[in-house]
Simulated assay, not measured.
Amino acid sequence: MTADGTTSVAVVGAGFMGAGIAQVAAAAGHEVVLHSRTEATLRRALEGVRASLERAAARGGGGREAEVAATLARIRTTTDLERVAGCAVAVESVAEDLELKQRVFADLDRLCPPGALLATNTSGIPVTAIAEATGRPGSVVGTHFFSPVPRMELCEIVRGRETTDETVAAARSFAEGIGKSCVVVEKDLPGFVTTRLIIAFVLEAVRLVETGICGADDVDRACRLAFGHAMGPLATADQAGLDVLREVAAGLAKEYTHPAFATPDLLDRLVAAGRHGRKTGRGFHVWDDAP
């Protein structure tokens, strides 16, 4: 960490979530190295970051072009993971696949200096299992950000079985320093807090549509108006990806054997039809702004 409180941050994975994490870290003044396996993914990530920054600048009344440019200048991209060497904070944001995450963390363990914060953005895989790939599980912690990262305030800090108090404190300090409010999850169980809650809630919303009780638009409207949700559960599912929803639900159903996590047939049919939500243009809703 430098004298002005900034630090070097590696973000491994340049999908929608990784790009958002890179954006908020750079906006807070940190120097960011954003890694992906392909140049095409990195280009899309930077285009998304630029568009997000420009939208935020426009909402702020304009005249913030220099701030947008400065934030973008603090993000360096690379397809060479060796370029993250020396970073004091590393946040992994690759696909929800334990073996993939373990490979990433084995590399981060090799590349990052002693005392570095090694964080995973997993939404439900136990941090302890990911940390087993390293020789310093005490330095590994969950930092579960929410989509879209620049706008969502919460970050779940998840303690693995061997995560030290110092690591939890460092993760909280980093997350709060980039504008997030934190809750600490003390037991490292699949789904943590928010994923368990939202999956059960969304699957029940799917069942309401599946059984003809209510249409998708009205389910979402009811939740916005009754509960103050920014978007309803089915729009949230479309944003996250219905294929991802089904995968996470299946994992929770296996872990907890609770009927709340049973996958509705309607969800299976939509995924099989390629209707994965916003990223494919159709899910429970039609999305004209599909990537």
Rank of each mutant, 00 (worst) to 15 (best):
T2M: 09
T2I: 00
S8M: 05
G13H: 03
A14E: 06
A14K: 11
G20A: 02
V33M: 13
S36P: 00
E39C: 02
L46D: 06
G48K: 08
L53R: 06
E54G: 04
A58Q: 12
G60I: 01
G63L: 07
A66T: 09
L72P: 09
A73M: 06
R74I: 09
I75G: 04
T77K: 01
A85T: 13
C87W: 08
A88E: 15
L98F: 12
L108N: 09
R110N: 08
R110W: 08
L111A: 02
P113G: 08
G115P: 06
T120Y: 04
P126K: 10
G135L: 07
P137R: 03
G138L: 00
F146R: 00
F146S: 13
P150K: 01
M152Q: 15
M152A: 10
L154K: 13
E156S: 11
I157Y: 01
R161I: 08
T167P: 07
R172S: 10
E176Q: 14
I178T: 02
G179M: 12
T195E: 02
V202Y: 04
G212Q: 13
I213H: 15
G215D: 15
D217M: 03
D218G: 03
L225M: 12
L225N: 11
A235M: 09
Q239K: 04
G241R: 07
G241N: 12
G241T: 11
D243C: 07
L245D: 04
V248P: 00
A249P: 14
A250Q: 14
L252A: 14
A253M: 01
T257F: 08
T263R: 11
H276A: 05
G277H: 13
R278C: 09
D288M: 00
